[in-house]
Design a protein around this nucleic acid. Structure first.
Lengths: 238, 238
DNA sequence: TAGATTGTTAATCGATTAACAATC
DNA sequence: TAGATTGTTAATCGATTAACAATC
């Protein structure tokens, strides 16, 4: 992971990476509750909605401060605000999407971004047929204008939805233009300076992890034939 | 995480979740090396290509067995085979994709699936205009045929690329029809029986994690104004 | 043999969890 | 006050890492 450590601030405060990764999940569950008119929620209820256990939820929230009331629970709106503030979602983050194939299209049209403080300010693609067209209200710029678009809109977060072959080049250009966070959908390991944060979304990897567990389910005792064979080989001294 | 523990097999063997999640990354790096004609690789080289350190790589590989040669390194093809086998990629996994908006389209057309032993056998969508059309060589079936498609093709892995509002219903139907692994792109926490494995891909969550780190970079010493204010409030006794 | 590199050990670090005192 | 629920402690568990003996 390319994430910073937690030794920040006085008294060693700082939020663990595992906690940061769960805050958006809590935020979504809280938003749903708020939409349903719920004003107060217990750690038990919120944990269930978020798919974690309540001890973990309370520990996670304790890193942000003491925002609950003993015997009562948490005020939904107040907690939404505190988590949003901690995640930096009370300000707008200008985003550029590079690559507008089906995936880029899906990202550009995804409503979940705008509602969370992410503003898609620029779309960039290499295909002349796409340049000039409008996607979700934004005109597609040519690849040559990448740096200009980043600077003009003060883009901090770049999304790479290009083929793998050009992803590293795009990353280099994004970083050179001033982008310091990258969300990478291309199936390659990007090389970037250490101060640049990269997160990867890789559907193929997720499927392979599922296949591993799926395979385990097939054999009796959760063990596959190949594994039994290896044990046997070892038992007889290889 | 909805993953199984590692107490499998004799002598407590079993591969840690963190290792399983990295095996596909190693596999991809090895495939690239193989394509470049490289036949042998050291843990140091492979680790660099995969974006991890070599100690972690060697520890990870040691869970599979002793497939390297001291003083020499690892045979690329042999390691590709061993990792593929461990991940269950030496067999074909029939997949159904439910929901064929831009994202579903992107998934259906993604070449990275087929090349890794995943065979998209069925496409399902609720939109009558899409039903009957062909995407990446497969005809789209109506939602009503979901169960029939799953059974007919012996689908083990279901991909949900629908709007959040219907995702839980789709998950229920997939499970009832016999699917035991789900890759969920809808932004909700799915509720499924414990024997069903669910993995989630959530772009909005990834962006929010980036925003958190981005925000930290803005303030001097990595601390944002709101945090400084809280420290101050605590220092003076709240 | 000398040099190189694996596989494993052991120490450290970070995350999870149960339990319960604090307190509304 | 009595009941409920938080925030925190401490134990446990799992993951990472450096170091090096084993061995090609």
């Amino acid at each position: 992971m390319t994430t910073s450590d937690r030794s920040r601030g006085p008294r060693g405060r700082g939020i663990p990476d595992a906690t940061v990764a769960r805050l958006p999940v809590y935020l979504r569950a809280l938003s749903t509750l708020a939409d349903d008119g719920v004003t107060t929620v217990s750690s038990e209820e919120l944990a269930t909605a978020a798919g974690v256990n309540s001890a973990k939820l309370r520990k996670d929230l304790s890193y942000l401060g003491s925002y609950g009331t003993r015997g009562v629970g948490y005020d939904v709106d107040y907690l939404v605000y505190q988590i949003s503030r901690e995640l930096g979602l009370t300000q707008d983050w200008p985003v550029v999407i590079v690559g507008l194939g089906h995936l880029g299209h899906a990202l550009a049209n995804y409503g979940g971004f705008a509602s969370r403080g992410f503003a898609i300010r620029a779309l960039v693609d290499a295909d002349p047929d796409l340049v000039g067209t409008e996607i979700a209200g934004t005109t597609v710029s040519p690849l040559a204008d990448l740096e200009e678009q980043v600077r003009q809109h003060a883009v901090a977060i770049g999304v790479i939805a290009t083929p793998a072959a050009v992803a590293q080049d795009i990353a280099d250009r994004l970083v050179a233009a001033g982008v310091s966070s990258i969300l990478n959908f291309a199936p390659i390991v990007l090389s970037v300076p250490s101060q640049v944060e990269v997160r990867k979304v890789d559907m193929s990897i997720e499927l392979q992890i599922l296949a591993f567990h799926e395979q385990r389910k097939l054999a009796p005792g959760g063990r596959v034939a190949s594994e039994l064979a290896r044990d046997l080989a070892e038992a007889i001294g290889r």
